[in-house]
């Protein structure tokens, strides 16, 4: 497994040099800065907007970085033929795949962490200046970014799984579509419950349980609107973390099985 870590580290160092990904990171940070320029509202509304926008931008930049990074990880290696030299070394295919995935996770962690830390500090300053009636602990924003990270962890495994047998372009749209469908889970659940006929119900039930439920990780709302409170927050957060890890494991096993058969 050391080999996987070597590949992971290499993947990170390469990804951190990719201009496209860094551009998203920079744009993300820039937009967060811009968000703080809104000043015409009352303190409460102002902070609401800043929180919602900031977390949303972290999420959006994260999604773009994740998809663009993950869909290319394997195909890039094949296209550039670097995979030949690697797999002709004593590297098992699953080690290679896991290394690549860990590299993606490390890259995402660094990106999300950079944006989050920046955002939380900026928010803390803004809140201190605005002096709202019910200030929130700025560190609690990390709960949302943790959820964003878990969502991206799952999204990355999905994109890597798909990348084993689709081209990056197809994968881009496929991953994005599945991400959107997975975000609509509150709708799919309703449709599964109140569908017109058993076929429709069954279909949406399957969608609800089979498509990765990216909507699970929506934790922006309680932070943006501190008046509303979540019961059993710990349960919610921890179960989502487990959900992401388990589902990612499923996708990675399937990716390993598919990659094992794949001709490079």
């Amino acid at each position: 497994m050391n080999v996987a870590l070597v590949i992971a580290r290499n993947t990170i160092s390469e990804a951190l040099r990719r201009k496209v990904l860094n551009a998203f990171l920079m744009v993300g940070v820039a937009v967060i800065v811009l968000t703080f320029a809104f000043g015409q509202f009352q303190a409460r509304q102002d902070l609401t907007i800043v929180k919602g926008m900031g977390l949303g931008i972290i999420s959006l930049a994260g999604i773009l970085i994740t998809i663009i990074l993950s869909i290319n990880l394997i195909p890039n290696e094949i296209e550039r033929r670097t995979i030949y030299t690697i797999l002709s070394k004593p590297v098992r295919r699953y080690e290679f795949l896991i290394g690549k995935y860990l590299g993606a996770l490390g890259t995402l962690l660094l990106n999300i962490l950079a944006m989050s830390v920046f955002f939380v500090i900026a928010f803390a300053i803004k809140q201190a200046l605005a002096g709202p009636e019910n200030p929130i602990n700025p560190l609690s924003l990390f709960k949302a970014t943790l959820m964003i990270y878990m969502q991206l962890l799952l999204l990355s495994s999905l994109a890597i799984f798909l990348s084993v047998f689709t081209t990056p372009l197809v994968n881009f749209f496929l991953s994005f579509s599945l991400f959107i469908v997975g975000n609509l889970s509150s709708f799919t659940q309703d449709l599964a419950k109140n569908g017109a006929n058993p076929i429709v119900k069954g279909f949406f039930l399957a969608v609800h349980y089979i498509v990765p439920n990216f909507g699970n990780f929506q934790y922006v709302n309680p932070l943006v609107n501190p008046e509303v409170q979540v019961k059993s927050e710990f349960l919610f957060l921890s179960q989502n973390v487990i959900y992401a890890l388990v589902y990612a494991a499923v996708l990675m096993i399937l990716a390993i099985l598919a990659f094992d058969r794949r001709e490079v």
Partner: peptide, 17 residues
């Protein structure tokens, strides 16, 4: 996998990071 410790491959027009 064991053999790979004892062989080496240089692909055509190799490409590195």
């Amino acid at each position: 996998i064991e053999v790979k410790h004892r062989v080496a491959y240089l692909p055509e027009s190799p490409y590195f990071y």
